[in-house]
């Protein structure tokens, strides 16, 4: 289970996270908050991309400060801009590169790559350059590449912010179908209704923590007051 204990962080004396303590156990957790609320930094602390100035983030016995590599293998991360996280020239190569360190053998690797591309509807684009995919397909490729390594938890930082409605729904359907625990940072409030728990981040603190409908109400009121 992901656990944050007294996590605080600042960028050049500007505090972005203030003493956050959380246990993230539920299967589906949503996180909402305004731009600049600290949401994105909070997401990055979960897999060690950001190591907080104070406090600690742990997954079971692993600590992001000391075992970043172990944590990253268990906590997958999807960014909002898919184009920049597609690393290799072609679709299949991008899914494959994450598997390379597993030393699965050529056949097993190829089998897994094909299965993932099939599952996310990318099989026809196997040898195409990733940059030729549509925005939604790019995000699906990013998801497939991250899921190739079979993480226990998937953290998504606004995965649908740059997508149109149809693609947003497609990505959400895929995320919904995952067996893994998902921590979804998003602006799409209406897609959180089926979630187990929703957090509202404001000014580096957890302003609300509860059921989706109540959390969204709280967030809307918070924004109305600005």
């Amino acid at each position: 289970m992901l656990r944050l204990e007294g996590v605080s962080h600042s960028y050049e004396a500007r505090p972005v996270l203030r003493d956050i303590t959380l246990d993230l156990a539920e299967h589906r957790i949503g996180v909402i908050g305004a731009n600049g609320s600290g949401k994105s930094t909070l997401a990055r602390t979960l897999n060690g991309l950001v190591v907080p100035d104070a406090g600690r983030v742990t997954l079971g016995e692993w600590d992001t400060r000391r075992h970043a590599r172990h944590i990253r293998r268990r906590v997958g991360f999807v960014f909002s801009d898919a184009a920049n996280q597609i690393i290799m020239p072609t679709v299949a190569e991008d899914v494959e590169i994450g598997l390379r360190s597993r030393k699965l053998g050529r056949q097993e690797t190829a089998r897994r790559v094909d299965a993932l591309l099939e599952r996310y509807g990318l099989a026809d684009h196997r040898d195409h350059p990733g940059h030729l995919l549509s925005g939604g397909q790019k995000q699906l490729l990013a998801l497939a590449s991250v899921l190739a390594t079979e993480p226990e938890v998937l953290v998504c930082d606004e995965p649908t912010t740059l997508l149109d409605l149809a693609n947003t729904r497609m990505v959400h359907r895929v995320v919904d179908s995952l067996e893994q625990q998902v921590v979804l940072f998003t602006h799409d409030l209406d897609l959180l209704s089926s979630f187990d728990r929703v957090l509202v981040v404001d000014d580096g603190r957890i302003a609300y923590d509860g059921r989706p409908a109540d959390a969204v109400d709280h967030y809307v009121k918070l924004m109305d007051g600005r």
Binding site: N47, Q85, I87, G98
Partner: peptide
């Protein structure tokens, strides 16, 4: 672009 790509390389465990 490079900043985001570098972050993705680390997040995906491809290059520490």
């Amino acid at each position: 672009m490079a900043e985001a790509t570098g972050e993705a390389l680390v997040a995906r465990g491809i290059d520490e």
